[in-house]
Amino acid sequence: MQSYLHDESVPSADSPRELLTTVGELTRRVRVAQRGTWFPLLAFAVITLVAIPVERYAPQLGPCRPGPEEGTTVCVASVASTAVYWPIALMLAYAAIAAFYVRQSRQRGLGTPIRPYVVVGVVLAVLLAGASLWLAYHPLAPFSAAPSEFTPTMHAVSFLVSPLTVIGLALLVLAWVERHWALLAYTAVYLSIALVQGSQVIESSSRWFFLPYLLVPAAVLLLGSAAFALFRPAGEAQPR
């Protein structure tokens, strides 16, 4: 690691400007050393992939009605997934992320700023569970409504009460905590993909119709995790 005390590019005289530059440079180095961006992205990719069998095989707990065709059922949403699986999975992910940052903090000899991120993440997960249950029994649109009849407000609420959005919002907090511009840009792309996907309606009789909704974000998270692990600057924690 380069020392600011022996850095020839920094004059030895302690002028106010040089001292402030030194403070800024040291602060930047500490922030970089505190980062571990690849791990939260990996944790979220894993829980998104695990959500696939949950979505497919978990029992439908919410209200359902007989569909237009004989033997079919129309349900509001997969309540078992959004109100039960996702909050629990998100809590477990945040526990793993907190443990990872604490371990990294001990190894590197630096405190971790991760607490606000974990707190916001857990609060969002609890809100997700509550909002999902509320919407299951107080749907925005009637059962008979076609997707084309959904208003922009309905789309907006669906977007906000989505586990993928909850992950994205928590990543925004992580970008702020880590003062990480690359993560901020990545999160903007991730949320844009979630927004575009959320507004698409897949009409299919297959019970696997939801796959793109989960596979695409999982792939984006995995790629992000790999990219942040591979292209991390010197001084940032190494994946072990």
Binding site: L26, T27, R31, Q34, G109
Partner: peptide, 13 residues
Amino acid sequence: AIAHQARQVEFGF
């Protein structure tokens, strides 16, 4: 400056 940003910093760092 380091202790402020890190909240807690080890001698070795």
